[in-house]
Simulated assay, not measured.
Amino acid sequence: MSYEINLSGQVAIITGAAKGIGKAAAEILTQAGAQVVIDDIIDPENAKPIQDEIGKLGLRPHYIQKDISKEENCRDLAAEVLDKFSRIDILVNNAGVVANWEKSFDIHVKAVHFCAEAVKDHMAKRGNGRIINVTSTCVFSGGTGIPQYVATKAGAYSLTRYQAKTYAPLGILVNAVMPSVIMSEMIMTRYESIEEMEAHYIPLMPVGRIGYPEDVAKVILFLCSELSSFVCGEIIVADGGRLAVG
């Protein structure tokens, strides 16, 4: 007997979902039947092709342009989703930046807290909800060469533990995924070509390849599903084995 992850009837907010891991998560959750809400800061006109593309996989995602570094915008985001869809089942705190210390802290730490708090009461009233935070293995390795990125992603790691302990009695499961060596604009800032980047990383990867956004999205899907109903406060490493055995 086969098993299918079915998120039909559920509504998922994914922050920073116009590209990369967030977009891949929007695609896979849409394929699983969820109504996805993409939050990002790009112009709504530029979001339409992304909505059209993902809409071919299932329900057309809704786009909301909110800067979640501001607490009131996080509250407004949740309120707009509830007004349109009457429920929020899933929150994926994925938004990430390479920026100065203040902006990095605003997005990687404060926004993770603000967005979670914005959906908490609704999820608690229904006695059910899933929150997935996206952090990074640089918390352990000290990699990337960007100190404010490392330090603030550690904040997201710690917040996951705090939220898991605080929200679980309300019926809300909070977990995180910790990627590394994922094809992205950030990783390519250090290399002149994909070939150069792969030549550096692939020999270091036990699985023999770098990761892609969909590799992380699959872990997010698991954490959104009933398969993870006894998983709480976990930070799942998705790095092709590099951190543990590389």
Rank of each mutant, 00 (worst) to 15 (best):
E226N: 14
R60K: 15
I202Q: 00
Q65N: 15
I132Q: 10
E214C: 08
F114I: 01
V36Q: 08
S225F: 01
G241F: 03
M188P: 10
P213Y: 01
I187A: 13
G96P: 03
H113E: 13
E196W: 01
R75A: 05
I38M: 12
S225M: 05
S193V: 00
A47M: 12
S158M: 09
D89Y: 02
S141H: 03
I68W: 07
E198Y: 04
E185K: 00
G127H: 03
M186R: 07
D76V: 13
K48I: 09
I210V: 15
G55N: 13
K218M: 10
E27S: 15
I68R: 11
N128Y: 14
K218D: 11
V109P: 07
G142I: 07
E27A: 15
I210P: 11
I236Y: 12
S69D: 04
G171A: 06
A18M: 11
G155V: 12
K70G: 00
I132W: 09
A95V: 03
V134A: 03
L29I: 10
H200N: 12
M188F: 07
S180I: 00
K66P: 00
I13K: 06
K125Y: 04
P203F: 06
D239P: 15
S228Q: 00
P179E: 03
T189L: 15
C232M: 11
R75M: 09
I220T: 04
H113L: 14
A99V: 05
Q10H: 06
T15D: 02
V245P: 00
S141N: 05
D39T: 14
P147S: 14
G20R: 11
A244H: 06
I13L: 02
M197E: 09
Q35A: 10
I235D: 06
Q31W: 00
E185N: 08
S193P: 04
I64T: 03
G58D: 08
A18D: 14
E195G: 06
D40H: 06
V174L: 03
L57M: 13
H113G: 03
I64R: 14
V98G: 13
E117A: 04
N46M: 15
V36N: 09
